[in-house]
Structure formats: C-alpha cells, structure tokens
Lab assay of single mutants.
Amino acid sequence: TETYETTDETEARKIAEELKRRGLTFRIERHGTTIRIESD
C-alpha cells in the first residue's frame, strides 16, 4: 500500500496516472483541501 497526500489537484492527477500506468488500483479520498490517494 502506498499513500500520497497533496493539496494540489494537478499533482493528484499525476499520481493517479502513474499508479494506473503501473497497473495498480487505488482510491481517492478528499478531506477538505487535502486529496489522499491510497493504492491497494
């Protein structure tokens, strides 16, 4: 499991693209301005 936290929408998108490219599944949670991406 890898966890990323960012407040930057663009960075979050880049992380999501990278995880997809590596064939990982992940979920995105939003907590206020923080975007949390957690891979399975």
Score class of each variant (00 low, 15 high):
D40W: 15
E2S: 08
E18T: 07
T25A: 10
R13A: 12
T33F: 08
E29S: 14
R36V: 08
F26S: 08
E38D: 04
G23T: 00
L24V: 11
R22Q: 06
L24G: 02
L19K: 00
R13S: 10
Y4L: 02
E11V: 11
I37F: 04
R22T: 02
T10F: 09
E17Y: 09
D8C: 10
R36D: 00
I35E: 00
E11Q: 08
D8Q: 03
I15P: 00
E5Y: 13
T3I: 14
R22C: 14
L19M: 06
D8N: 08
T3A: 09
T25Y: 12
D8E: 04
T6P: 02
I37M: 01
A16P: 00
T25V: 08
I28Q: 03
L24S: 03
E5K: 03
K14Q: 12
E29R: 09
E29A: 08
T6F: 07
E5M: 08
L19I: 03
I37N: 00
Y4Q: 01
E11T: 09
K14I: 09
E11R: 05
E29C: 15
G32L: 03
T6Y: 03
R22E: 02
E38T: 15
E11I: 11
D8S: 12
D40R: 12
T34I: 14
R13H: 10
I28S: 03
L19W: 06
E38K: 12
T1L: 11
F26R: 04
R27A: 05
I28T: 06
L19R: 01
S39P: 08
D40Y: 14
T7C: 14
E5N: 04
E29M: 12
T10S: 11
L19S: 01
A16V: 15
G23C: 15
K14E: 09
I28D: 03
G23D: 04
A12M: 05
T25D: 15
E17C: 15
K20F: 09
A12R: 01
D8G: 02
E38V: 15
R22W: 04
T3D: 03
T25W: 12
E9I: 10
G32T: 02
T1R: 14
A12L: 04
I15L: 05
R21M: 07
H31S: 09
T7D: 12
I37W: 01
I35T: 02
T3N: 06
E18L: 07
T33I: 11
I28K: 02
E9G: 04
R27H: 14
K14D: 07
I15T: 02
L24A: 05
A16K: 05
R27Q: 09
E38Q: 13
R21N: 08
K20Q: 10
S39C: 15
K20P: 00
D8H: 03
I35R: 00
E11F: 07
E18W: 14
E29Q: 09
I28G: 02
T6S: 03
R21I: 06
S39V: 15
E18Y: 11
F26T: 10
T25L: 10
K20E: 09
T33L: 12
S39E: 04
S39A: 14
D40F: 14
I15N: 01
Y4N: 01
K14V: 08
R27Y: 13
Y4F: 07
D40C: 15
R22L: 08
T33Y: 06
I37T: 00
E9D: 05
D40L: 14
R21F: 05
G23R: 03
T33W: 04
K20W: 11
A12C: 15
E29L: 13
R27I: 14
A12W: 03
T33R: 10
I15H: 04
E17P: 00
R27T: 14
H31L: 11
H31C: 14
E2W: 15
T25G: 12
T34W: 07
T6N: 01
E18G: 07
K14T: 08
S39W: 15
E17L: 11
R30Y: 14
L24T: 03
R27F: 14
E9A: 09
T1S: 11
L24E: 05
A16M: 15
H31K: 09
I35H: 01
G32Y: 02
E9H: 06
E11P: 01
H31Q: 10
